[in-house]
């Protein structure tokens, strides 16, 4: 569940202690902001996504996931989802195409660089390269190009169920590879 400090915050959140939320915000707010900003490229929208994520943490403080995933994985994933929700809500189809085009052009050489730093990008790239090509494609389109699995299914002309299974296996395998590399 993470460090004793974050475990304590989770315990206090579950005991309905609002000060624990503030502490979580102090510990993780700026990193959540970096994640949201990497998706939205806008300070105010990123701040909105961070706010959504922390509000969601408070609303889900009694849920099982916060306890089993730990604070930072939960917050980072939920922040990213909140940012993607904002992006998808306000981006028209044309804009999205443009945005995807920009993403593709700006990170053609290494999409991982658009999201993480140089050192992690190299590690991530190595791990992705070891996945079967179809799993690699799905993860890249989902994670780096911000497409939904339904959009990936259309774009790759593949049944949605197949895309879901590729995402599932790809992510599991990637986790195991990244875990081994970091040992």
């Amino acid at each position: 569940m993470g460090s004793p400090e974050t475990a304590d915050i989770v315990r206090r959140l579950q005991a309905d202690d609002p000060a624990a939320l503030e502490e979580a915000y102090r510990l993780f707010g700026q990193r959540c902001n970096a994640i949201a900003h990497s998706v939205l490229h806008d300070d105010h929208q990123a701040a909105d996504a961070v706010q959504d994520a922390f509000l969601s943490l408070w609303q889900h403080r009694h849920g099982l996931i916060v306890r089993s995933a730990g604070l930072s994985p939960w917050l980072f994933v939920v922040t990213r989802n909140a940012a993607l929700g904002i992006l998808r809500k306000q981006t028209t189809r044309e804009n999205r195409e443009q945005l995807t085009g920009v993403m593709e052009a700006s990170s053609e050489m290494d999409p991982a660089l658009a999201i993480v730093g140089q050192a992690q990008a190299s590690e991530l790239r190595d791990a992705l390269a070891r996945l079967p090509e179809e799993q690699q494609n799905v993860l890249e389109l989902a994670y780096f190009r911000f497409l939904t699995l339904a959009q990936i299914a259309v774009r790759t002309n593949t049944p949605l169920g197949t895309v879901k299974r590729r995402a599932q296996r790809g992510l599991q395998q990637l986790h195991s590879l990244m875990g081994k590399q970091s040992l």
Partner: peptide, 18 residues
Amino acid sequence: MADAMAAVHSMMGSQPER
């Protein structure tokens, strides 16, 4: 979900602060 979140967390690497 905890496993999936941990997997994505590992993809994110160590996040900078903003």
